[in-house]
Structure formats: C-alpha cells, structure tokens
Design a protein around this nucleic acid. Structure first.
Lengths: 213, 213
DNA sequence: CCAAGATATGAACGATCCTTCAGTTTCGGA
DNA sequence: TCCGAAACTGAAGGATCGTTCATATCTTGG
C-alpha cells in the first residue's frame, strides 16, 4: 500500500504561543468531526479548516501535508489507549487469571469507549496510508503485555503462553472494533460489556487447564 | 458518513457476449490488485482500467460510477462468505456445543482465508462509503445463524442465547479481521487457526454452564 | 510603545481525477 | 456474407483538491 516515509509525517513546528495551541486543538476536533460526518473520502483540507474556523494556510504551518495531520491523530489516540492499558497491566500484575481476564476486558472497553467518537473516526483513516505496520506493532505490544501478566499469574501453566496472549489480544481488539464499526447500538455495547470479560476468562481458564493435563 | 442512494450503486447492464464477461472479471481482478498495491486513496478509474487492459470508457458501460464498482466487489465477497457460513450452519445443526464452536471457527477461517487477498483489499473500501449499515447487517445475520444453532444444540440451556450468539459473532469476525489487517504473518495465522476454535468452545461452554447454575 | 518574530489569511496554481460521448471495432445471427 | 447490436476506445470537459506564498494581523520582550 502507500508507504509514506515516516520522517515526512512529523508535524512542522510546535506551537509557542497560547493561541496556536488552541488552533491546533480546533483543527484536531474539526478533523474528527469531518471524518465522522463525511468519511475519509470527503475529508478535505479546506473542509477541515472551514470547520475549525481557521484558514487553510494555518493548517500548513503545523503539518507539511494532510497525511501528517491524520497520522498525528492516529498516533495520539494510539498513545492514549496504550498508556491506559499499561496502567491496567500494572494494576493486574500478579493477580489470578480471572481478575486478569476481566480486568483487561473492562480496561479495554473503557479506553475505547472513553471517546468512541474519536476511535470510530480513526478506524476510517486506515485506508489513507498503510497502517498495517502500526496495527502489527499495536497487536504485538498488547500481546507482550498480556504475556507478562500471564507469566506472573499464580497457578498459570500455559503450554504456549505467547500464543494464548496473542489470541487474547486479537479477541479483545477485534470484537470491540467490529461492534464499534457497525451502527452504534447501545444494546450491542451493553452486551459486549457483559459478555466480553466472561469470554476472556473462559478462554484463559480453558487454555490453562489444557496445559495442565 | 457518505450515504449514497443504494439504487444508484447497481451495475449499469449485464454482459451479453462472452468477451464482456471476461472484461468485467478483468476489471474486478484489477481493482483488487490496485487496491492492494496502492490503497483506496490511489484507486483511480484510469489506473484500474490500465491494469485491466481495457479503456476507461469500458468500465463505465457496466458501472455508472466508481462507487458502484467498489460496491459490487464488497457485495460479491459478502455473499460468498455468507453462503459459506450458511452451508457450515446446515452441517452443524443439531450438533453439540464443541462441534458447533469449532466448526464455526474453522468455517469462518476457511472462508476468509480462501482469498485473503480479496478480503484484505476489501477491508480498505470501508472508507469510501458508509459500510456501517452493511456491517450491522452482517453481524446480526451471523448472530441469528449462530443463535439458531445454539437453540438446537443438545444440552444447551443459555440464559441469554441472543447475547451469547452476538458475542460469538463479534469474536469470530473481529479477531480474524485484526490479524488480517496487520502485516501478513504466517505465524499469526497458524496461531489463530489453533486457538480460535478453542476460544469459541471455551466461551460457549462457560456461558452454558453459567446458565445451568 | 515599538520592533521582530509568531501566527493567520485566502486567492491562485498545478495536478489529478471522474465522467462523457462521438467514433471505431468486434461479434453473432440471418 | 452482411448488417445491426454489442463492446470498446481515449481524448476532452468540468470539477475538486492539495499546496504555496505574498500579505496582513497579532503577541511579546525590551
């Protein structure tokens, strides 16, 4: 797919005065709004600027091109969720399997739901440039984090801890994404919240028992 | 998001001679190739036609606009997978929970892997027009199918069969999607193939046991 | 209060891109 | 073999979009 050199995706300059910081924030918000209202295909520099109440040129003082703006949004959301999960992992270190499974699921749901608006919007950016590399990193990052939790859980004896951790990461990430990408239905979210933790626990317990035999 | 009137997305005319059928097929293949090579953002009518070895005008004899072409691809893939799952459901009707869980997981993996090239490419189209409606339909379609299987499974007494079926559908659809959207890694696919059936079974068994109590 | 840097403006340019259509080529039945 | 229909061609029109830059406005340290 498109493989823009990562070095060219960095912002052009950092804000030094208060008003420019506000401008950048306005641009970010406007981008998400346009993304949700019109889709990536209709996401235009002019449209974003108009919605943000600034001029097109202003945007180009902070981002060398449109892709850089989108990439900044993706990275920001990514970091947000990653740190939320990192915090959850610290809290869950050393707990038993049930606590870990349910804790991870609820932490993941909380992080994604915190601003599902942004999350949903950002899912749509994936088409603009090749995010498979980023997705891979995110997936293995989550898998590693989970693997560490499983390694320190009392009574855990997985035959293939890495695979179990990987699978759990895929289950978490995927199920939430699928539900979010469908039409927003409060009903589906409550179901997810009730069932996902149980599903995670069931899988971990079964995988652990399978190894013990 | 973009909400193109569905009636405007239909193909313009059906082929009547043999060569035109070949042309359409060539256009479809070319579209997928361009999609994978350049991404949706670079998917151009000219580029597709060039790759297919035909003229731009030819494409416009069968599709009123670019979106119609993309939509046709999505629908085709959708029908393919739906019928594959429908066949699997007939085969699994009346079986026990373990057979159902593992049968669904392998059928899903087989269907998606059959041409993962097309699947992966089509994931990228989601940005062009609003697919959330289609995704919702797909999700609830899968959920209904699973629910019917659970209803006829011997020894199954779920408290909330609909929720369990919904969750299983989300787990299946999501985990495979996440892995496919990451960089293609043979390693990850084998892990998925080994763990996903077990995860599905573990969840179903746990949900069933929870209701029996 | 003033200069100098930071920030904002928006018309204009060039590059694509989608779509059309008048004309040409190919096919298949009579 | 011949003719009408089907299929194909590709240059050109019209519209949109990303990006630049000369100019204007604002902020702040001295």
């Amino acid at each position: 797919m498109n493989r823009p050199a990562p070095s060219l995706l960095k912002p052009r300059k950092a804000p030094q005065q208060a008003r420019s910081a506000a401008t950048i924030e306005a641009i970010h918000i406007a981008t998400i709004q346009v993304l949700l209202a019109d889709g990536v295909g209709r996401l235009t520099t002019t449209r974003v600027a108009e919605r943000a109440g600034v001029s097109v040129g202003t945007m180009y003082q902070y981002y060398p091109h449109k892709q850089a703006l989108l990439f900044a949004l993706v990275e920001r959301q990514f970091d947000l969720i990653e740190s939320a999960m990192q915090a959850a992992a610290e809290r869950l270190m050393g707990c038993d399997l049930q606590t870990i499974a349910e804790g991870l699921a609820t932490a993941w749901l909380d992080a994604k739901m915190a601003d599902r608006v942004a999350s949903r919007a950002i899912y749509g950016i994936a088409a603009e440039f090749d995010l498979s590399e980023l997705m891979s990193r995110a997936l293995s990052c989550m898998a590693e984090m989970i693997e560490a939790l499983l390694a320190n859980a009392p009574g855990a004896r997985f035959a293939d801890r890495a695979s179990v951790a990987f699978m759990l990461a895929a289950l978490l990430g995927g199920s939430v994404r699928v539900v979010m990408e469908a039409e927003a239905s409060e009903d589906n979210f409550t179901r997810l919240r009730r069932e996902l933790p149980q599903a995670c626990h069931a899988y971990l317990a079964a995988a652990n028992q399978r190894a013990a035999a």
